[in-house]
Design a protein around this nucleic acid. Structure first.
Lengths: 193, 193
DNA sequence: CTAGGGTGTTACCGGTCTGTAACTTTAGCG
DNA sequence: CGCTAAAGTTACAGACCGGTAACACCCTAG
């Protein structure tokens, strides 16, 4: 009780934060609600008072991580106000940094793979959030003055998605090591047109 | 013998085939050994007489799918003997075909994501098999007369890997729809250098 | 025909999972 | 202070999981 961190934050927020972390590290099907509540310093009943089900918790976690990702995007605009091309390069750099710092990839993509049931409630949420991120990257490419902005944005998307999954199957020394070179080369190539 | 109507496939092979299919469709953690044996028309005891554990079965399934993938590669050489550039384009076409025909992506990548335990026995197998595929694609690019063959091969790898996972999170109308255009554009770009 | 190995069947073990019920304790607040 | 709502505790239900034991069967090789 001396440490205020576990006491100050509401149980719901502690559960959400802990669940995000554990889902990310061990996968959704790799962690049970008991483990989450224990790590969050609470209990199962409290979890089920705040979330309808584990699926509901999963969805809330995905929304929360997407929210954090959006904050990172906002930071680009704050760092290079108006300079969309600089923001695009910052996006590449940030993506590479996150690749190096964490080898578990994208929570939404991982969830889509784990939750193979086509009617899983999290699927439509994943699609929504991913489409929003795609729209944002397309807008960034377009505003950076790139012709064929959609194609560049989609190519960068696939490259990053591929790098994140390649990281997990062959490690950091695999193809993902060249991500920055690939991305920068693509941007230069599209701008030259 | 020579009785084609009742093709008696050995239980081990039936189990292996069925497990590959079910792991692919529902994920590794999404299907139990009971479901596999039932679908294979046998029982759990027989499975454990042929495989040490579920983990062992997983590994054998991955090896089997990698073997099938290798056969597809061999088909390229058979179809365009000696013409490595044609084989590379065939690789792109085949990859796109498989993307359209099946939305569950690569078994090895999916397994790497599902089996988040860093010391899981399947992990080293996945890495081996993926590295072999990478080597093969690098060799194909090099023999096709492309400068910077490694970089092209790695870029194509990431694009395909990304397309397969994007397919599962945002669907076929997402960025993965442009895979062929991206890949062909890249090959042309690398060859022009 | 017989022996034996591969196979099928049933039952079971110990553990884990999501989710719920009933009750007690705590914390905030007028 | 006392009231109330939130949170903690314990126990449990019902299903599923990977894995094993014991035993009956059947097909074929010798």
């Amino acid at each position: 009780m001396a440490d205020g961190t576990t006491e100050r934050v509401r149980p719901r927020d502690r559960i959400l934060e802990t669940a995000q972390d554990m889902f990310h590290k061990h996968g959704i099907k790799g962690v049970g609600v008991d483990a989450i509540t224990e790590a969050a310093g609470t209990n199962k009943m409290t979890l089920y008072r705040h979330f309808e089900s584990k699926d509901d918790l999963i969805i809330e976690c995905l929304r929360a991580t997407a929210c954090k990702a959006a904050a990172i995007w906002d930071a680009f605009e704050a760092e290079y106000p108006g300079d969309k091309l600089a923001q695009l390069h910052a996006w590449v750099r940030k993506a590479a940094d996150m690749l190096n710092a964490d080898s578990r990839g994208c929570d939404m993509a991982n969830a889509a793979i784990e939750l193979s049931e086509t009617d899983h409630p999290a699927r439509r949420v994943i699609k929504e959030l991913k489409e929003a991120q795609r729209d944002r990257l397309v807008a960034l490419c377009r505003d950076a003055g790139v012709g064929q902005a959609e194609l560049l944005a989609d190519t960068l998307s696939l490259l990053l998605e591929g790098a994140r999954v390649s990281m997990q199957s062959v490690g950091a020394e695999g193809p993902s090591a060249q991500f920055v070179r690939m991305a920068e080369g693509l941007i230069a190539s599209f701008r030259a047109r």
